[in-house]
């Protein structure tokens, strides 16, 4: 017999993975899908609603507002953290004892849990007793993140930059360290300026790790919840109510499971599509 040998028993070997994935991803996600098409009035009784929740969410001003805030927030922190992280990585020493010192210092913020970061900054930025808040006011700025939307945004962004720029730094540094010495030597012989070295050697060689850094920071910041929740609770007013804070309010505050399910799925799709689009575009050149 020359045909392909088939052995269906192999499926049993895949079973543990299937079960694992089912329980930690597929089944929870399907519950959300289930909610998003139905209405419940408690007692586990559900009524089919079709796409009603999706239409409602997509036409709701509240969703549009928190999505808008989310996009603005994510854009700002990406615009700050990626260039800033790259700049720090470029100015770090490449060899010698200071490398480890710098790396440890850089890693420290990453080791602090989200809620602790929120609590730290909550106190740090308080206008009456916090070091940052008090100093800013002493310098003549009218700063109170608990009352002023601008101050609250400033604090949330500063906190995120403080917490997460290190991730970009560490990834960029890893990318930089992998550039062979010969590139720098060739550039010297070619008479390249230090800007040309960054532009034509270091940035292109960092491209892959920067794509990863960008995707990680995009996903994490787009899903940000704990830090602003602890810091501002989404306020003042709704000023820092990002998508996930709003989602929790809908799902667990109002217990509107249907709309919450629809928001979750739209939210999920936005992240998935953006990542896919970005990755495809970024890797287009590499595919050849």
């Amino acid at each position: 017999m020359t045909g392909k040998f088939t052995n269906q028993k192999a499926w049993f070997l895949v079973l543990p993975v299937v079960v694992l994935v089912a329980f930690n991803a597929l089944i929870p996600l399907m519950t959300v899908v289930n909610y998003s098409f139905q209405e419940s009035f408690g007692n586990n009784i559900f009524f089919w609603e079709g796409t009603k929740w999706f239409e409602e969410v997509l036409h709701s001003d509240r969703f549009a507002a928190s999505l808008g805030r989310q996009i603005v927030f994510t854009s700002i922190i990406l615009a700050i953290e990626i260039p800033f992280g790259v700049a720090i990585a470029l100015s770090m020493p490449r060899k010698g004892p200071w490398v480890s010192v710098c790396l440890v210092l850089m890693a420290l913020p990453l080791l602090i849990p989200w809620n602790v970061v929120g609590a730290m900054w909550n106190i740090f930025a308080l206008p009456d007793i916090g070091l940052l808040g008090k100093t800013l006011n002493a310098l003549g700025f009218d700063y109170d993140y608990t009352q002023q939307p601008i101050s609250a945004w400033f604090t949330v962004i500063l906190m995120d930059v403080w917490h997460w720029t290190s991730l970009v730094v560490l990834l960029s540094f890893a990318g930089l360290s992998s550039i062979p010495e010969a590139y720098y030597q060739a550039a010297k012989i070619d008479g390249a300026s230090s800007w040309a070295v960054i532009r034509y050697i270091e940035l292109p060689k960092m491209k892959r790790v920067l794509i990863i850094a960008f995707l990680l920071r995009f996903m994490d910041s787009f899903m940000i919840y704990t830090e602003p929740f602890v810091l501002t609770g989404g306020g003042p007013g709704n000023a820092t109510t990002f998508l996930s804070i709003d989602l929790v309010k809908v799902a667990l505050g109002q217990f509107d499971l249907g709309p919450a399910g629809a928001i979750s799925l739209i939210y999920f799709l936005i992240i998935l599509l953006t990542c896919w689009l970005f990755y495809t575009l970024a890797m287009k050149d590499e595919a050849q």
Binding site: A186, I189, K205
Partner: peptide
């Protein structure tokens, strides 16, 4: 001076 290294060095972009 021109120098050619063990591993080819080109400016990728």
């Amino acid at each position: 001076i021109a120098q050619v290294f063990q591993f080819p060095v080109v400016y990728d972009t």
